[in-house]
Write a protein that binds this DNA or RNA. Structure first.
Length: 270
DNA sequence: ATGACATGATAAA
DNA sequence: TTATCCTGTCATA
């Protein structure tokens, strides 16, 4: 379930139970055994979310980098964790074995990236990312400038993490529906008002997503015709995976854009 | 049981 | 543009 809101929520939730504690780090699956050994029994100082990336800063200077990709998922358990992990647990972090405080366990399965980096390597990754609307240090002007100068479709641009960090396929469809912009329009053809709408809507939707712990972009929840396929538990969208427009009843268009399926209303978005 | 598909990203061609 | 990686879920059989 990983767009930017998920990542920031993870940083917050795991931060509460893992930071400023010494962790036991292992790789039950084995693929991350060498990396785990580098940070095992180190003290975790902070967890930082940037776009869809997570950085765990350890006292010794090592930085654990995690990117969930499409399939990655974290499990957070009270206690020392299930002895027999279900599935392929790439990374396991256990707090509480050294400080006498309540134990907590984090399991990670299926990530695209899970590696121990140097601070320089962390900086290189962050340097490739555009502003993240969920971060207080985000500069919306960088986003506006990039959109204004590109001929690419705005729907493709929103998935480009070097332009704006944290947007995924669901939020792309929802933001452009809310701003009434056709995803296929060229970035440089958008008005200043429209570009500002995209940023402000992205920020508002992502912040709500962090708060709710899920994607609910539509007002009043389950309003309107049912989506083509049932959304994930508790999630509700305007255009994403719908086949009828919630606002005007038109058939939602579905097409490839930026190597992903895109949904939009041909009447409401133009 | 089996297979299509998924809220992601990269390297190779 | 395509092939590839990673895991779980859902629809179909």
């Amino acid at each position: 379930v990983p767009e930017g809101h998920t990542i920031h929520r993870i940083a917050r939730d795991q931060g509460r139970v893992l930071t400023r504690r010494r962790l036991d780090v292992t790789s039950p699956q084995g693929r991350f055994a060498a990396g785990a050994a580098l940070i095992d029994r180190e003290r975790l100082e902070r967890i930082e979310a940037y776009g869809k990336h997570l950085f765990y800063g350890f006292a010794g200077g090592h930085v654990l980098h995690v990117h969930l990709g499409l399939f990655g998922v974290f499990g957070l358990h009270k206690g020392a964790g299930p002895l027999d992990p279900v599935g392929a647990v790439r990374l396991r972090m256990v707090a509480g074995r050294h400080d006498g405080r309540p134990p907590a366990t984090v399991d990670l399965r299926g990530p695209t990236a899970c590696a121990v980096l140097t601070p320089d390597e962390r900086m290189a990754i962050v340097g490739r990312l555009g502003p993240d609307p969920l971060r207080s240090d985000a500069d919306p002007e960088r986003f506006s400038a990039a959109v204004a100068r590109t001929a690419r479709a705005i729907g493709a641009v929103l998935l480009d993490q070097s332009v704006i960090a944290g947007i995924g396929n669901v939020y792309r469809a929802e933001i452009l529906f809310a701003c009434r912009i056709d995803p296929r329009r060229s970035g440089r053809d958008l008005s200043g008002v429209e570009v500002r709408c995209v940023w402000d809507t992205a920020s508002a939707m992502l912040h709500k997503g962090v708060k709710d712990g899920r994607i609910v972009t539509i007002d009043g929840g389950d309003v309107g015709p049912a989506p083509a396929r049932r959304p994930r538990r508790g999630e509700a969208t305007y255009a994403y995976h719908r086949d009828v427009c919630v606002r005007c009843g038109s058939a939602i268009e579905r097409y490839e854009l930026g190597a992903r399926t895109c949904w939009s209303c041909p009447v409401c978005q133009s």
